[in-house]
Amino acid sequence: MNFTFIKEALPQVLAAIPVTLEMALVATIIGWIIGILIAVARRNKIPVVSQICAVFVSFIRGVPMVILLYVAYYALPMMIYSATGIDTTSIPAIWYAIVALSLDQAAYSSEVFRAALDSVNRGQLEAAWSVGMTTWQAMRRIVFPQALAVALPNLSGLFVGIIKGTSLAYYVGVYEITATANLLANPGLNFIEAYVITTVIYELISFICNRLFHTAETRLNRFRPKTVA
């Protein structure tokens, strides 16, 4: 092990963590909102929209992340340019990566939300209606909280998945953790050191995320009967 390298490289790799987290968080927020909308559209069988959503979900789930990233990276500038004439060279690569990651999260989370909403007994909605609540009130206060409790373990998996997925953004030129480690390792061929650092960082991020989700899960599941795990 080259400890001088580790000492020099570590702060720089650590400094790239916010880039990774920014990508993951923004893509998760956008992706999950779209995911909920898709889930609701498909459950309510809204004509045309529902079919388009089904194809979208199937497509995104069938295409590897790298290809999604490349397509977003090459297609979006073309689309933006031909639609608005705006020069896209000034748009940082991270935004293309966020688009690709968001689409990925939207597709996968929509399946999670759909199953979670299905798991909430229809009687809950009817009971809310029977006391005079509007559908929106019923969804927001009764159905969604219960569905979220069901969805959380899977959402936790999706979030850790997206953290791992951000490592591929390296291939469209985003300087996140992986890209930074690569850049630093190459001149002196300090591969083992660089990737051990990276591994530890990813493992720690995953660990912390799992903990956070687990805590949220316990809180959200207070209402459920205690079962032996």
Partner: peptide
């Protein structure tokens, strides 16, 4: 108001919150 065969109490709310829910939202 309706009383259901399967009770249909709001599973994510306590008994007290169940009764309060309509008073607050409606």
């Amino acid at each position: 108001a309706m009383v259901f065969q399967n009770y249909n109490l709001f599973a994510n709310k306590t008994i007290l919150e169940n009764v309060m829910e309509g008073l607050i939202t409606v």
